[in-house]
């Protein structure tokens, strides 16, 4: 029976509604059991920002044990390194140099334990989307995401887009449960244990930076990166939102993000916006810098430049 026919016969009356409700409720109850075993400690865990030192340590230990068990390893490390005073991370990307080789996309997936996806379905989660753009145009609507050839192609330039870590972030404002926020060092993070999976943030983001775990992430245990951060690359649950964190597990220890270090062209630049000797400040001072979708007023920590 088609949807139209059902409406005509009036089967969406009270009885039909109750039937629908029952089916939906059973479906909703079945969902968690498929993905995760019920964990009381995780269920009653407080918001990350409300965890005191002792509770945080206990949570991190619990997660390490869980991940070790889940992935059959014994080397999981879940950190919670805090922000450094006087640091605001910023990223700059040289559009004159990027050749669109997608090495950054690959390095990101490996570093951040993203869902590798079903090889047939190809639903891998990527934080970075490389847009193939017409030279002389800045129209992202006409960009090509799915190019698959030798790069750089004649007459094209390449613009990788990832989370811009906005200082006035629409995703943070959209979240109804405050499961996502901007840290004092500028990184916009998600507490995967607090996220309810409503996906309002994904709808709010103008940069297509938020990715949703439709299924329980599948990562072969030998490909897992066991060096993780609570707010970053620790394995995610089904039904939560995730995003680029500038590799929070690396940058909070002084290292560059993984996409930065893999780039064969040196297009990617990372540093502290508040340090006037940093490469970011040098670029802002000497190059033609622009912000993507400046008109939406999100005040990003991510800059593009030409030279």
């Amino acid at each position: 029976m088609s949807r139209k026919a059902r409406f005509k016969e009036g089967s969406c009356g009270r009885r039909g509604f109750l039937k629908l409700l029952t089916v939906t409720a059973v479906g909703a109850m079945a969902l968690p059991s498929e993905s995760e075993a019920f964990d009381l400690d995780a269920f009653i865990q407080r918001h990350f920002k409300e965890l005191d030192k002792e509770a945080l340590a206990k949570t991190l230990r619990r997660l390490e044990e869980k991940y070790d068990h889940d992935y059959g390893r014994d080397d999981f490390k879940v950190r919670a390194d805090g922000p450094q005073p006087g640091v605001h991370y910023a990223y700059a990307l040289n559009l004159s140099k990027c050749i669109g080789c997608r090495r950054c996309v690959q390095a990101c997936v490996e570093e951040n334990n993203q869902h590798r996806g079903d090889p047939e379905r190809g639903d891998r989660i990527d934080y970075i989307r490389v847009l193939e753009m017409e030279k002389g145009s800045l129209n992202v609507e006409k960009s090509e995401h799915f190019y698959d050839h030798e790069v750089p192609a004649e007459g094209k330039y390449y613009m990788p887009v990832q989370c811009h870590h906005c200082n006035d972030a629409p995703c943070v404002k959209a979240c109804p449960v405050e499961a996502t926020w901007q840290e004092p060092d500028g990184i916009v993070v998600v507490d995967y244990n607090w996220c309810i999976g409503c996906r309002y943030c994904a709808a709010a983001c103008p940069y297509w930076a938020r990715k949703f775990n439709w299924v329980k992430p599948r990562i072969p245990s030998e490909e897992i990166n066991p060096d993780t951060h609570y707010l970053g690359n620790r394995p995610r649950y089904q039904g939560v939102m995730e995003k680029c964190t500038f590799c929070i597990n690396r940058v909070r220890r002084g290292l560059n993000p993984a996409c930065h270090d893999i780039c064969p062209t040196g297009s990617r630049k990372f540093g502290n916006l508040l340090d006037e000797n940093s490469v970011i400040r040098q670029i802002i001072a000497t190059k033609r810098v622009f912000i993507l979708k400046e008109e939406v007023g999100t005040d990003p920590s991510f800059y593009y430049f030409f030279d």
Binding site: I99, R103, D123, V130, F146, D148, H149, E150, V151, T265
Partner: peptide, 20 residues
């Protein structure tokens, strides 16, 4: 001149692309 190279595989879209 910087050598050209093969791009790594593109993402697979679950949204059908117009004309593709």
């Amino acid at each position: 001149a910087f050598a050209s190279m093969q791009a790594l595989p593109p993402p697979v879209s679950r949204i059908p692309r117009r004309g593709v």
